[in-house]
Amino acid sequence: MIGGLDIFFDKAELAAIESLRRYLDEQLEPELAAHGEDFVPKDKMQSWTQKLAEFGLVNAPQPESAGGLGLSWKLHVQLIEELAYSSGDLAIAALVNGSAASMLVKLAPEHIKTRYLPRLLAGELFASVGISEPDVGSDVAAAKTRAVRDGDHWVISGEKTWITNGEYSDFFICTCRTGENELTHILLDRNEHPYEVRGIPKIALNRQSTSQVFLDDVRVPVENTIGEIGSGLKNTLTLFERARVHVGSWGYGMARRALDESIKYAIDRSQHGKPIAGHQLIAEKLAVMATEIDAARLLSLRAAGMIDAGQRCDKECAMAKWYGTEIAVSATRQAVQIHGGNGVTKEFIVERLAREAMIAPIPDGTTEIQKLLIGRSLTGVSAFR
Rank of each mutant, 00 (worst) to 15 (best):
N97L: 07
L104C: 08
E110K: 07
N97W: 01
E110C: 02
W162Q: 13
K106T: 13
K160W: 05
G88N: 08
S86G: 13
D152T: 12
W162T: 01
Y168S: 00
F172I: 10
S87W: 00
H111E: 04
T178I: 13
P118V: 11
H76I: 06
A143S: 14
A100R: 08
E159Q: 12
V140I: 15
L90D: 03
I156W: 00
G130R: 04
G130L: 10
D150Q: 10
P118D: 15
H76E: 13
L183A: 09
S102Y: 04
L104D: 02
S86H: 12
E182T: 15
D135H: 12
V140Y: 03
P118A: 05
A127L: 01
H185K: 10
K144P: 05
I163S: 03
L187P: 10
D139I: 12
R177E: 09
L117G: 00
R146D: 01
E124H: 12
R119Q: 14
S128H: 01
L125E: 10
G123V: 10
W154F: 11
G137V: 06
I163T: 15
I112R: 04
P134Y: 11
V148T: 15
A147I: 05
D150I: 05
Y168H: 14
F171S: 03
S87V: 01
R115P: 02
L125N: 08
L95Q: 04
I163W: 03
C174K: 00
V155P: 05
L125F: 11
A108S: 09
A94T: 15
I163Q: 03
L104N: 02
V77N: 12
A108R: 01
Q78G: 04
D152F: 09
G88P: 03
P109D: 02
Y168Q: 09
H153T: 13
S99R: 00
G137L: 03
D135E: 13
E133A: 02
S102A: 13
T175C: 15
A141S: 09
A147P: 09
S99N: 09
G130I: 07
I131F: 07
I186C: 01
K106G: 06
A93C: 11
I163D: 05
I173Q: 00
H76P: 01
N97A: 14
L83T: 02
L121C: 15
A94K: 00
E110P: 03
G98T: 10
L75M: 13
A147E: 03
A141K: 07
I112K: 06
R177G: 06
G137N: 07
H185R: 06
L187Q: 01
N181Q: 07
W162Y: 12
H185P: 02
L183S: 04
E124N: 11
G179D: 12
L90E: 00
W73H: 15
I131R: 05
E81T: 10
G166K: 04
T175Q: 14
L95N: 12
H111I: 03
Y116M: 03
E82A: 14
I92T: 08
I156K: 02
I80W: 02
E110T: 08
L75E: 03
V96Y: 00
V105Q: 08
V148M: 08
K74Q: 14
S99V: 11
D139M: 14
V77C: 14
D150F: 04
N181D: 14
